[in-house]
């Protein structure tokens, strides 16, 4: 088993290609790997409860740990209480932590 950290900086409203990252996260989990998906920048926009975000919901359902950068959330006025179930706010330190621990880290 490998450990992966996928960083998604884009959002599904502006970029269809977000489906690549979401799908990759699900496929890696299905293959038995440990996967965290970190939403940053506009990537946090689908994490607001009530958003049309079926793709992100599927990622959460697949068992991927989904984190949202607290700085990006504040920048966009998304309070923690407005996050959809299954998304945890996080400090960006988590990326450095995972890199230091040797997780394969990919940015999209």
């Amino acid at each position: 088993m490998s450990r992966y950290m996928l960083i998604e900086s884009r959002d599904p409203f502006d970029s269809n290609d977000v489906a690549f990252t979401y799908g990759l996260a699900c496929d890696l989990v299905k293959a038995g790997h440990d996967v965290a998906l970190v939403l940053v920048q506009n990537g946090v926009l689908p994490a607001r409860r009530g958003a049309n975000a079926d793709g992100l919901a599927a990622v959460i359902k697949a068992g991927v740990r989904v984190l949202a950068d607290d700085f990006s959330l504040s920048e966009r006025g998304i309070a923690n209480a407005r996050l959809t179930s299954g998304v945890e706010p996080t400090k960006i330190d988590v990326v450095i932590d995972h890199m230091a621990e040797g997780h394969k880290t990919l940015w999209h």
Partner: peptide
């Protein structure tokens, strides 16, 4: 329009 609608959300701003 698009993601720029979020500019109209009250109470935003990162440190």
């Amino acid at each position: 329009r698009a993601n720029a609608v979020n500019y109209a959300v009250a109470g935003q701003g990162a440190p």
